[in-house]
Design a protein around this nucleic acid. Sequence first.
RNA 1: GCCCCUGUAGCUCAGUUGGACAGAGCAGCUGACUUCUAAUCAGCAGGUCGGGCGUUCGAAUCGCCCCGGGGGUACCA
Length: 553
Amino acid sequence: MSVETVLIDALIRAAETLGLSTGSLPAVEIGRPRQKGHGDLSSNLAMVLASHFKKNPRQVAEELLRHLRLDSGLILKTEIAGPGFINFTLNPDYFFETLRRILRDGKKYGCSDRGKGKKTQVEFVSANPTGPLTIGHGRQAVIGDTIARLLEATGHEVVREYYFNDAGRQMRVLGDSVRLRYLELIGMAVTFPDEYYQGAYIREIAQKAVEEKGDSLKSGDATDYFSGLAEQEIFALIRQTLDRLGIRFDVFYNEKSLYETGKIDAVLQALRGKDLAYEADGATWFRTTRFGMEQDRVIVKSTGEPTYRLPDIAYHKDKMDRGFDLIVDIFGADHIATYPDVLAGMEALGYDPSRVKVLIHQFVTLTEGREKIKMSTRKANFVTLDELMDEVGADVTRYFFLNRSMSSHLNFDLTLAKTQSDENPVYYVQYAHARISSILRKAGEAGLDPDGEADLTRLRAPEEMDLIKALGTFPEVVSDAAEQFEPHRIPAYLEELATLYHRFQHAGKEDESLRVLSKDREASQARLALCRATRTVLANGLSLLGISKPEKM
RNA sequence: GCCCCUGUAGCUCAGUUGGACAGAGCAGCUGACUUCUAAUCAGCAGGUCGGGCGUUCGAAUCGCCCCGGGGGUACCA
């Protein structure tokens, strides 16, 4: 039983002796004061009950305290503060126990089984192979991968999936773009349309075609060859980029297969069978108005070609049929309009739409100093994810994207990322890890045992206690981040933890007796244990972010 | 017009789901190294939380109305 539940039980019992029936009690909550000096835990119960008793909250708090029976081995001190908070100070033994647990659990510390065995799919990136991944894709890739890692850490069984389409208009234009560059390369005069893909990579693919085929394709329709070649080359590039970021997909799902296996038709039939699809103006419409939307939507154009909605619905039906309990879709803000239709589709087909969790991340605005750089795959003026990693490395790239909540626009100043990479917070966190590694190495030389037994009660300095307390909240941070799908909580936590560690180690510089490797052997062993526990948590956190854990810097 | 995101220190952003005097990093200014790696630490300065009204014991957080920025509102994806 956690301390929180113990306290809640005790508070409820105290409230009952004041004449409140359990039924009329509001939900009792235990919070963590953010201010030092307000104890370790606090309850707002007195303030919530004040209006019921028509008394002042501090007075209610006093009465509650008078009836509160607490285990002194757990709670050291209670106090009424502020407008009527009851603050609890925990017995340090409690924290030493969590420290032991960290040392015992190691890599598992922070993991939980909240999502025990839940079959979960995370779909992200899903960029069509029309060009190198951009910085916008990068944000999604890193967010998606980290959410997958968080879900794994909380016991989910995760499949990472990339959905793409290599048919359709986009790919035809791509193939034809390559064809025109090819013709140019073999010396023919062509006019290259504005709306075609302008990037230099198109020429490189065309060059490959020249090497493979010479000028044998100068006449006739070889668009299929060109788009096939382009897809192959570009996908290889995309996988390579993802690999640099440490991202591996379990499944690459091709939209085309939905047609080949008849899944598209099956959806159409099913919708028609339920009178949820109808023909009008030469097109086929989905009765989305049945599901609370303002207008019906076209799912098959008058040309006979489906709109994106139909395959999207068929794809999600397939996810449902594959038995996923939780389906996480990660989209950029530009796709925000597509998901209500997909969810309506699920409902129409008799599935529970609440199994789908749609996460929308806002755009990345790339700036160079004050200049905004516009990003578009078709125009040549984008900065690729690879170029970014060339400049700042994979760790910084991942960290930058994970640092901020996905609902806020990300302002990525390229000049800042390049010139200030030394001052990037990721190094601050990594440095704490490296520093600990170094001190553990030194411990052996000093005749201490870095992995040895320790009397943890020797840890009493404020710098030590603050660090221990922070280590104890890690599992909660991880499960909250996973549950809320908010990866940015992890870097925020790690920065705080790194600060506490740096402060702890620095204390030894001001006060000789607080050094980790001191003359007091027992104190040293206890501090080494604290170092090890801190390194474990830093390492586990960095692993969740997919960022390296240097032993030296 | 309607829908989604957003507005917090000079800049970039957090804010534990309604709690205690609003926080961090960077930039600025002071100080601390023959180091258990100073890629560090301590301190100072910096705010009408876009504006207004409301709900509440209590609002950056919830509701309504304005103002600004971004995205969407296709028989494009």
